[in-house]
C-alpha cells in the first residue's frame, strides 16, 4: 500500500487531497507569504459545491472576488481577462458554479510549477518525512 507521504510527491492534487499534506503545505506557504494561493484554491472548490439558489452563494462569490481576485498575491498572477470576467459576472449578478474555474486553473498551474516544487525540497517537508 502506498504511504500518504509518497502520494504527496505524485502530484499537487494528491498532496491537497490529504489532510496532513494540505496542512504541511499550508505551513510552508505561510512562511513564504503565499498562503492566499492555497486558500483561494480551496475557496474555489468550496464555491463550486454551493447552491446557486441560496442568497449566501452570491455573497461568497463577492467575498472571493474582493479578498483574492481584486487584491492579493493571487490577483497579480491572474490574467487580466480572467479578472475582468469574474468582475463582470459579479456586477451582473449572473454567478455560476464554474465562474472561478479559469482563475483556479491559473493558480493551480502556478503552484504546480513553483511552490509545490519548492515544498518538496523544503526543510519543513524533509523534516516531516
Amino acid at each position: 500500500l502506498e504511504s500518504p507521504v509518497s502520494r504527496w510527491t505524485r502530484s499537487l492534487l494528491s498532496l491537497l487531497a490529504d489532510q496532513d499534506g494540505a496542512q504541511l503545505f499550508r505551513s510552508f506557504l505561510e512562511r513564504e507569504a503565499a498562503v492566499d494561493t492555497l486558500d483561494f484554491w480551496f475557496a474555489c472548490n468550496g464555491f463550486r459545491q454551493m447552491d446557486l439558489r441560496e442568497p449566501k452563494t452570491l455573497r461568497v462569490a463577492k467575498a472571493i472576488h474582493k479578498r483574492y481576485v481584486e487584491h492579493s498575491a493571487v490577483s497579480r498572477h491572474l490574467k487580466p481577462a480572467t479578472r475582468s470576467y469574474i468582475k463582470d459576472t459579479i456586477k451582473k449578478q449572473q454567478i455560476d458554479s464554474a465562474m472561478f474555474d479559469q482563475a483556479q486553473t491559473e493558480i493551480q498551474t502556478l503552484m504546480e510549477e513553483n511552490s509545490y516544487q519548492m515544498f518538496l525540497t523544503s526543510d519543513i517537508y524533509l523534516q516531516y518525512i
Binding site: 500518504p4 491537497l16 487531497a17 490529504d18 489532510q19 496532513d20 499534506g21 494540505a22 486558500d39 480551496f42 475557496a43 474555489c44 472548490n45 468550496g46 464555491f47 459545491q49 454551493m50 449566501k56 455573497r59 461568497v60 463577492k62 467575498a63 472571493i64 474582493k66 479578498r67
Partner: peptide, 20 residues
Amino acid sequence: YDSEDDLLQKCISSAMPKKR
C-alpha cells in the same frame, strides 16, 4: 447573520480534506 469573512472561511473549510 454571517459576515462575508465568516462565509468565506466556511467555504474554504468545507473544501479542506477530512481526516483519513
